[in-house]
Design a protein around this nucleic acid. Structure first.
Lengths: 104, 104
DNA sequence: CAGGCATATGCATCCATGGTTATGTAGAGC
DNA sequence: GCTCTACATAACCATGGATGCATATGCCTG
């Protein structure tokens, strides 16, 4: 199964997730917001679903999609050690700028 | 320019970054660790470089690469609102564990 | 010159994305 | 029961891009 990294490399899928972050919504609303064909949106939703990033609830003829953030935790954990790096860089910002000046 | 999302969709590039997280290193070391051809590694390094995720320092005939985490901040910020979603679940879990303790 | 690396070229392959069209299916409403 | 809505899915096509391989070359520096 695809990792969150691979699935979210696609800008449209990130947009879909961002949409669902505000409100859970049926496929039709997503289609309207994305300006993509319904089959294509369903295709993206399927990829997101199979990666566990969204889940669907049945409401009459509609499927209401909402975010499932669990797979993002793996991404977050991968990110963890790097987070310290930019924290360090903030501390050394003045020094870094000085170095850049010296390079010129 | 490619976003960190797109660049890091590639497993080998994530591995390279993880390697450089431990120690900055010349290309040769990366080639050995990755079991990929030198041109291919250089190609990946170029993609990482153009995304600002690594930077090279010249040391004699060698180029020492190291991580630059700055572009990961954008990824981290995108992740931010989703973090609360699993935080909610964590809160629920903590509460649950507390309940279990209380039961003892 | 030899070592270390970037870059180019050419090639094969595969996958992803997008489009369209059609069909299946489940429920809503008449 | 019939039709409409909402969606999933399939099948096709076209295209672009990514990855990998191999080979060659250029460049810089010890």
């Amino acid at each position: 199964m695809a990792t969150a990294f691979e699935v979210l490399a696609e800008p449209n899928r990130r947009r879909i997730l961002d949409l669902l972050l505000t409100t859970e919504s049926p496929v039709g609303d997503i289609v309207d917001a994305m300006a993509l064909s319904q089959p294509l949106v369903s295709k993206h939703l399927r990829v997101l679903r199979e990666a566990g990033l969204v889940e669907a609830r049945v409401d009459a003829q509609r499927r209401i999609y909402r975010v499932r953030a669990d797979p993002l935790r793996a991404m977050d954990e991968w990110l963890q050690p790097y987070r310290r790096l930019w924290a360090k860089r903030l501390d050394a910002l003045a020094e870094h700028l000085q170095t850049m000046e010296d390079d010129e």
